[in-house]
Structures are given as C-alpha cells and as structure tokens.
Amino acid sequence: MPFLARFLFVSLATYSLLHLALGLMVSAIARPAVHLGERIRPRLAAGCLLALRLLPAAGAALIVAVVCVPSYLSNEPEAPTESVGYGCMLVALLGLGMWAVSIARGLRAAVSSRSFTQRCGQAGRLARLPGAPAPSYIVDSTAPLLALAGIVRPRLAISRGVLRVLTAEELAAALRHERAHRSAHDNLKRLFILLAPGILPLAASTRTLESGWRKFAEWAADDRAVGGSERRSCALAAALVRVARIAADSPQPSLASSLLGDTDQLAERVDRLLRAAPPGPRIAGRTTLALGAALLMASSLVVAILQPAALYAVHRVLERLEHFVE
C-alpha cells in the first residue's frame, strides 16, 4: 500500500481511538460539570461546557497533528510493501464517517440559517431600532420572533407582534440580551458544536453538554443584558413572559409541539432574574492567568514529546495499530 494511504489510515484510526477515549472521559464528567456550572458564573460555565463538548474532537485532532503525525513521518519507512490491517481500516473509516456526518450536519444548519436570514430579508424590511447595533429585520408577523440570525455578520430579526407587546424598556432589555449573544459569538459556537462529531459511545452526554451550554449561554446573555441592575432585570423578565404569552396565545397547533417542553427553563430564567439582579460581567483576570498557565504546560509537554526517543515510542504504538487484524 502506498505511504500516503497508510499514513491517512493510521492518522484517522488514531484519531478515532483518541476521540473514543476522550469521549469516555468527558461522558464521565458531563453531568457533574453541568451541576457544577450552576455554582459558577454562567459565562464561565458556558465556556467550560463548550470546551468539554469540543474536547474529544479538538483534543484528538490536536494530539494526532502534534504527536502522531511527526512520529509517523519521522520513523515510518516509505516501503510500499507494507500494508494496513483490516482492524485499522475499520477504525479509520469510523473516524471518517463521524466527520462526514458532522460536516453534513453543520453544512445543513449553515444553509438553513442562511435561507432563514434571506427569507427574513424578503418577508421583512431593514430598520434601525434604538439600541440595536446594526439595522434589524422587522418581519410583518405575529409570531414570537426575536432572534439573532447569521454567523459572520449576525442580524436581528424581530416580528411586529413582539414589537407591539413590549414596552420601550422591555424591548431595550431584550435587545441588550441579543447584543450579548452577538458579542459572545454564540451562533458561531453553535456551528462549532454541530461540526464537532458527537461524543461516542455515550450520545446522551452530547445532549447533556449541549443543553447545558445553551442554558448557561442564555443566562450569560441575561447577565450581560441586565448588568447588575434590578430594574433591567425586571424588564428582561417581563419581556420573556410577554414573548412567551404570544407563543401561548398562538392559534397554530404546530407551534405548540415545536416549542413545547422548556417550561422549566423559562421558569428558572424568570425566577433567576426576579430573585436578585444577576451580577454584571467581570474582567476575567484569573481566567486569562489560568489559560496562560495551561498553554505553557501544553507547550512544555509538546516539546518533551517531540524528542526523538518519545517520537519513536509513539511510533511503536502506531505500528501496532497499523497492523491491527492484518
């Protein structure tokens, strides 16, 4: 088998196994991590859950790129007589399949979202709302729509129904909430989540982490929108309830089934906003320090691994994988 084909099979098989191992690790801590998230700042909690969700995919890719690829390239002879075991091929194809499914999912979401934005443009008109960072689509509909759509240059879409029921103060709070999503690049993060293959073999952990991230991302946007003010907090809670009321009064039966089931989340959010004004965002000095330390440790680890002896040891493991079930 040609060198390039063997290299690709081994890299993909290594990726799959690492993804599986990291996935098992993340699965074990997913639920406790979501519970722990309630005790720390929502922004940090959302960041941690996002990192956990992306860890198997990104971690495996990083280890393959930084450790396995240099090891294979520096130690593997280019002899075309060598072949790859069926086991290795199967594991490699599993990795390829995982990526194909996720990329298709991400692309489908990107296309649907683009189509949604285009249809907002067709069905609505662009207008500048006070407090909105960019012109927004005002859609002539009674639907409970107030959303930030798009990835690179997200635009706000808001229905006339929502504009009609919100007071100026409530609208301002709702717009600040959406602006917070915009500055946190939440739509881009959604795309990353869709593009990252699910955590195998426990798919439930994927859902736990994703729903946890969505919840804390909302809470973080709430916190940023109210900025520690009880008055704004109350206005945002009122905006949420008024928009929920539109959905509740909507005559479309399909609406009932599509948006059903998040009563607990709404109750939690409104209660949280009314209990006490959530604190405003804080400059994350400690987070920067922790990130710097982690980066330093990772760089030292990479330097240690890239020593010839370590690369050779890794290559011996890769050789075993390459000839697995030959």
């Binding site: 990107a110 639907a143 795309l191 399909s254 609406l255």
Partner: peptide
C-alpha cells in the same frame, strides 16, 4: 414564521440565538 417556528430545527440545528429558545407553549 409559522413554518419556521413549527420546524423541529428551531432550537437545535439553526444557527440562531433566539429569545424564544427557552420560551414555549406555556
């Protein structure tokens, strides 16, 4: 809008940050 809101993708596969994410038929 009715079609959009009826879509099962609303809170999942659409890259949209929506105030109605957590707001359903209550």
């Amino acid at each position: 809008m009715a079609a959009f809101l009826a879509s099962p993708q609303v809170s999942g596969d659409l890259l949209i940050s929506s105030l109605v994410d957590a707001v359903g038929q209550h």
